[in-house]
């Protein structure tokens, strides 16, 4: 059982508060959605959690360990995986090699100067790719993949490090509806099977309300609602600032 406790996280850019006093708790088995209009501070929030940005104040604790101040790679090593809104993979490598890199990194075998990287951890990498439905494209260069496929590779890379907490920034952006559904189903399965704690942002409301166990609503840097999908859907403040006429 893992627990990510976020308390009063704040960050401003040049006097403009991007994230102001966000607090929440993420536990194993949670599939927690973070939603809000554009510019609400979702990506900033993610960057604060994985160490990309440093908060002005507040704390992020993983099972009691303070993460604030640690560089991203240390936070990763403690079990916090991440996927990016704008996909970031190693474009000059094949799909399988992308996953192998994570496995090599996790096994602390990156400083090897002799044995070819492509021959190490290939089987486990293929198994992970199979899990996300990318095994057939394992030997294609990552740089030529379709957008949705890259997202799936990113998920496989995130899973390769066997994280306890997974941060997914818009995991289904750019995907066709059927693909979206498949990815969310897969994510929900992973949460159940492995006891993962997942925090994700999403624009697609079907994905959010169809799969999330809980929902956080961010507006202008502040949390304005938290609860089960049904509770959030019914919250009048959420409806006014965010869901608007849709609800």
């Amino acid at each position: 059982m893992s627990e990510l406790v976020v308390r009063d996280l704040q960050r401003s850019f040049g006097g403009v508060q991007a994230v102001g006093g966000v607090s929440f708790t993420l536990c194993s088995g949670d599939l927690l959605a973070l939603i809000g209009p554009n510019g609400a501070g979702k990506s900033t929030c993610f960057n604060l959690l994985n160490g990309q940005l440093r908060p002005d104040s507040g704390s992020v604790r993983l099972d009691g360990t303070e993460l604030v101040g640690l560089p991203p790679r240390h936070i990763w090593a403690l079990g916090v995986g991440r996927t990016f809104q704008i996909t970031a993979t190693f474009a000059s490598m094949t799909v399988a090699e992308n996953v192998q890199m994570v496995l090599l990194s996790r096994a602390r075998r990156l400083f090897g100067l002799w044995r070819p990287a492509a021959a190490q951890f290939r089987e486990p990498a293929l198994a992970l790719l199979d899990r996300v439905g990318m095994a057939a494209q394992a030997d294609r260069p990552c740089g030529v993949l379709a957008y949705g496929d890259v997202k799936r590779v990113e998920l496989a890379m995130a899973l390769a490090s066997e994280p306890t907490v997974l941060l997914m920034d818009e995991p289904t952006a750019g995907m066709a509806p059927a693909e979206r559904l498949a990815l969310m189903v897969l994510t929900a399965e992973l949460v159940r099977e492995r006891g993962l704690a997942v925090l994700f942002t999403e624009h697609d409301m079907d994905a959010v309300f169809g799969h999330a166990t809980r929902v956080l609503v961010l507006d202008r840097g502040r949390l304005i609602a938290e609860g089960s999908p049904d509770q959030v859907r019914a919250d009048p403040r959420v409806q006014s600032v965010y869901l608007g006429g849709e609800a």
Binding site: R73, R82, F84, T89, S161
Partner: peptide, 13 residues
């Protein structure tokens, strides 16, 4: 080189 962001976030210094 390909993605410093991604590399850092999978533990590569």
């Amino acid at each position: 080189r390909d993605s410093g962001l991604r590399a850092e976030s999978v533990g590569i210094d």
